[in-house]
Design a protein around this nucleic acid. Structure first.
Length: 430
RNA sequence: GGAGAUGUGGCUGAGUGGCUGAAAGCGGCAGUUUGCUAAAUUGUUGAGGAUCAAAAGUCCUCCACAGGUUCGAAUCCUGUCAUCUCCGCCA
């Protein structure tokens, strides 16, 4: 959420930013009016409350002095304020809700230097690592590989649940678990993150904090009862909200968390995309990285977080490139986002495997997550960052495709072998 | 799921209708004292908002949350949520 004062003082800038992000600007047309109205009503309501408070105090004094009649007269007077007062309180609530709603619907301001553009075409390559392997045979995709090896079963998942679900078996399931453990181990022992295992169901307040709500309700799976929980679409939600509504001490920052969780996304509006294989599922596994930092350090921490995610691909020997997303392609809450894309031989291209965002104070303001500098200074909002480190399902795909052999078997990267109980190769069980 | 108890500031903990945004203690911060540490001592110490160019000041709101009663609510009433104890059930 943007700061009210910032929007008031930079209305034109905000408008321009919205256009760069392909957002309609019409809500801003009402801003000035809404803002003035809100302040006028607050002033009025405060004045009435003040009148009531002071009169009530006088009544108390009169009662104690034994001046009953005067007190009664005063009571009647205050009573007559009541209608007006409750009406003003209602209006005040409406005005504040309207303003909150407007602000909650505005996306973050991109950082300086983020390429301006409408879509993916405007992303800019930052760096490449590794060389895509030359295969001297016709490469298969992960579906053909996985099914012929007997480690991937999509048909039965459809029977049990529906489309966009899959079952991993044997060495395939083990590979998924190995990747999770490997990633968590690297981030906790080499990169200084604290492992956390959060709830997989969250309430609406948390979803507001990390800006899934109010705008992206239809991307979530909702639990059908009065508690209104939703399945997490990413561990970013429970983990970033971990310290929501708290005031941390500056000396305790930065905080680094890493969490393994399943993620659930309805993928509404993506019906025709990536229908084959495991690229886009309703349920997938992810190891997430979350940082809470001082405002002045968030850019540097963002670079480090992205490097932490890239490190996993380097250790696994998977070629990738890192790009910076353009204004039109960035997520709602991000001020800057790096996507890391892994090489997929079957598609002869790089595909997203991680998205690392600096959200600045945008989410912290939504969840009222603050810190205090030494010496009793005013609380300030922390900066929040998050990134996948990595999407495990897509890493699984990349391992199969990049390490496939001519006979359809899969060579296990050396660093993963201890996590696979020493297994060097996944071969057909048939 | 059943029965009961509880929810006050960074913490402990007073407060059962007005002078309580909240005693007291601890902690924090600033000063004084002291050869240093420690101790002592004085002061200070919640958040959000309105007004204002800004600061100061003034005012409003907040004692789990949401409603209600009342001229007036931390205090009374209702609901919700959370925590604790006992029973049941389970992993």
């Amino acid at each position: 959420m943007l700061d009210l004062n910032f929007v008031r003082e930079n209305l034109e800038t905000v408008k321009k930013v919205l256009e760069n992000r392909n957002f309609p600007t019409e809500s801003l047309e009402k801003f000035a009016e809404l803002d003035a109205e809100r302040r006028r009503i607050i002033g009025e309501a405060d004045a009435v409350n003040q009148k009531r408070n002071s009169s009530s105090k006088e009544i108390g004094a009169l009662m104690q002095a034994g001046k009953r009649e005067e007190a009664e007269a005063k009571k009647a007077e205050v009573s007559s304020l009541k209608d007006n007062q409750s009406e003003l309180e209602t209006k005040r609530e409406e005005a504040e809700n309207a303003m909150r709603e407007l602000l909650a619907g505005l996306p973050n301001i991109p950082a300086d230097g983020v390429p301006v553009g409408a879509d993916e075409a405007a992303t800019v390559d930052i760096r490449k690592w590794g060389e895509p392997k030359e295969f001297d045979f016709e490469v298969k995709d992960h579906v053909d590989l996985g099914e012929s090896l007997g480690i991937l079963d999509q048909e039965r998942a459809v029977k049990i649940t529906g489309s966009r679900f899959a079952i991993l078996n044997g060495a395939g399931a083990r590979l998924e678990r190995a990747l999770v453990n490997f990633m968590l181990d690297v981030h906790t022992t080499e990169h200084g993150y604290t492992e956390t295992l959060p709830p997989f169901l969250v309430n609406r307040k948390s979803l507001f904090g990390t800006n899934q709500l109010p705008k992206f309700e239809e991307d979530l799976f909702h639990i059908k009862d009065e508690r209104e929980f939703a399945l997490i679409p990413t561990a970013e939600v429970p983990v970033t909200n971990y310290h929501a509504e708290e005031i941390l001490e500056a000396k305790d920052l930065p905080k680094y968390y890493t969490a393994y969780t399943p993620c659930f996304r309805s993928e509404a509006g993506s019906y025709g995309r990536d229908t084959r294989g495991l690229i886009r599922q309703h349920q997938f596994e992810k190891v997430e990285l979350v940082k809470l930092t001082l405002p002045e350090n968030s850019d540097e921490e963002h670079e480090k977080l992205t490097a932490n995610a890239e490190r996993i691909l380097q250790l696994l020997g998977l070629p990738y490139r890192t790009v910076v997303l353009s204004t039109g392609d960035m997520g709602f809450g991000a001020r800057k986002t790096y996507d890391i894309e892994v090489w997929l031989p079957s598609q002869n291209t790089y595909r997203e495997i991680s998205s690392c965002s600096n959200c600045g104070d945008f989410q912290a303001r939504r969840m009222n997550l603050r810190f205090r500098r030494a010496g009793g200074a005013k609380p300030e909002f922390v900066h929040t960052l998050n990134g996948s480190g990595l999407a495990v399902g897509r890493t699984w795909i990349a391992i199969l495709e990049n390490y496939q052999q001519a006979d359809g078997s899969i060579q296990i990267p050396e660093i993963l072998q201890p996590y696979m109980n020493g297994l060097e190769k996944i071969e057909s069980v048939k």
